[in-house]
Nucleic acid binder design. Sequence first.
DNA 1: CATGAATGAGACTTCATTCAT
DNA 2: CATGAATGAAGTCTCATTCAT
Lengths: 195, 195, 195, 195
Amino acid sequence: MRIKEGNKEKDILEAAIKVFAQNGFHQSTMAQISEQASVATGSIYLYFPNKKEILQSIFDMLWNNLFETFDTVTSNDKLSPAEKLDGMIDLLFDRFIENPSLAIVFVNEQNHLLFDDKNPFTNNYQRFLDRGIELVRNGIERKEFWGEVDLTIFKYFIFGAVRNLLHLWAQNPDKYNLNTIRKNVKYLMKHGLVA
Amino acid sequence: MRIKEGNKEKDILEAAIKVFAQNGFHQSTMAQISEQASVATGSIYLYFPNKKEILQSIFDMLWNNLFETFDTVTSNDKLSPAEKLDGMIDLLFDRFIENPSLAIVFVNEQNHLLFDDKNPFTNNYQRFLDRGIELVRNGIERKEFWGEVDLTIFKYFIFGAVRNLLHLWAQNPDKYNLNTIRKNVKYLMKHGLVA
Amino acid sequence: MRIKEGNKEKDILEAAIKVFAQNGFHQSTMAQISEQASVATGSIYLYFPNKKEILQSIFDMLWNNLFETFDTVTSNDKLSPAEKLDGMIDLLFDRFIENPSLAIVFVNEQNHLLFDDKNPFTNNYQRFLDRGIELVRNGIERKEFWGEVDLTIFKYFIFGAVRNLLHLWAQNPDKYNLNTIRKNVKYLMKHGLVA
Amino acid sequence: MRIKEGNKEKDILEAAIKVFAQNGFHQSTMAQISEQASVATGSIYLYFPNKKEILQSIFDMLWNNLFETFDTVTSNDKLSPAEKLDGMIDLLFDRFIENPSLAIVFVNEQNHLLFDDKNPFTNNYQRFLDRGIELVRNGIERKEFWGEVDLTIFKYFIFGAVRNLLHLWAQNPDKYNLNTIRKNVKYLMKHGLVA
DNA sequence: CATGAATGAGACTTCATTCAT
DNA sequence: CATGAATGAAGTCTCATTCAT
């Protein structure tokens, strides 16, 4: 038999990320993905039941991955809530810094999946964000954060901001310096615009 | 005489907003739009050359509209830069408060258009945002705002945040109070999380 | 608008009968049908939701039609049960005599539909056969028919015999004379082989 | 040593019969057959050149088998033509009584093969039936059978009847008693419906 | 001999767009 | 202007067959 050599599933996933990033999910065809992955079109279906599931898998991978690394940030008891929040920002940025295409897919296509049906990945996605919220709640209790902030609103506020900046960067990784972006985000998140 | 020929173009546009909001641009069909607009499918092509141009027009309308109302906020010389920024936030939120569907389309589909080709609307969209940037620059000069902030980054930061919160609200207008969201946004934008 | 001229639905149905007869249902493609009907492939879907439904419609038409003409045979009270059965044989043969292709489709493809799901046409198909059974039951009560015969078995016996003979004829309408076949069927049904 | 290499060809054939009976020839996949046979998909091609040939082989086997046992019935000179015909009916029914799946395949798929190309099995199939015809001709000569009967027509008549009844039974072997069916067939074949 | 991953041709179906009325 | 039937290109997915191991 022809042994499943290499990691064709991973090849396909990476090809899909590139293609989705370039054309958007709906403009991308299975043929494009298979070509990018140097694989026959039909072979994709050995690994994924359909096109949507490929996108799904990309996000599953992303959030599982992110969620797993979460503890590396928060387990350190010496850090203040604010520092831990900074750590989460770093986690996100670090995850994408090697892969701008993934950032673009993340920014553009996640909504397509979010409200469709109960997706398993939603769990880790939401769970990740909710851990962040815990940090904020903690900071409020310690009087380090402003007590009037609505936690859910903050969650969407900062997540939207980060997402949009990732998009800006990913669209043109050479033009914007991700570390500058990162620094600004951390500052604005904590202190806002007003001097 | 033809009774109430009304404004068929507007009917179509409004129908499209609803349909796009519900299914997303690519999942929406011309047939759905025409039905929602109570118009024959072929009639759409009397007003728009193709499907994409409908989306385009939605954004044109949106940003032209927004850009036009801009002066109402900034012409008042008694207001500080910070107050004017608040005014821009209000402008955005007010624009969507009557039309959650438009908010959803705005949030989900704008990216599809942004990097495609030179779109005319991009002008007013960018122009609107850039006026905001002027305000920030002004505030920095007056030492009211933090001087280290990168203007472009701030632009994307706050725009992403607002966009994501509009999405949250539009998805469930009865659950979240847009004014609470608005208040939080204004505060976080200016003072951040830290007490 | 382009008015639905002629009877395109009927054209497609007739084309499908020809194509199905020639290649069998599964070997037939929508493209073949559309070509035979002088219609664009996509147009078929204006009239039928999918390929299987075309086959379905063929049988619906066939059996509804047959069932409707049934009374012309049985309402005549002067006829004996045997004569009425002969009349049913005639009904069947007459239905196909103008359309050998329909006979072939009928013989080859009906089974594909029969056990799939509850098909509406099954009703008229079964109803037609069951009317025949009523005639037999009647004949038995009058002592005109052999009392030991199992009605269901007879139903399948004679129906299978007729079907197979229709196939023989339809495959080569010029070689076999349908009236000769018909005469033999009637005789064998009633008196069997033994002198 | 390779334990029980058994007869893989036979395994595949039997698996195919089951699978074809359940789904029909065209709905059946090579993968289903290989799984049912506990064999790798590719292995099927060591024994059969393609899918159609499997079906072919099933019928070859069936008719060769039937044809071989034929003499057991007709060589007995003490039997009348009518009794010999009964014997042929028995042959057929006995062949299927242990294997309803084979009956279903036989009934549903034989036509697909019959008019395709010159199939070798057609020989034994036709030869078998023609032997039956010889018996009828013989009976006619002896004035035991009705002289007006067209031999070919009778062949298709009785074969269609039997086939349809086998189908009825095979679809639900527990509901219908094959011996009752057999008895009815023999009677109807010889004496018909009329008392 | 045996395996089953890989292939790629081809089928069904959708839908933006056209155009005869 | 308006209509909606008709078009046909294009995309997703299936599956018989091949072939490297």
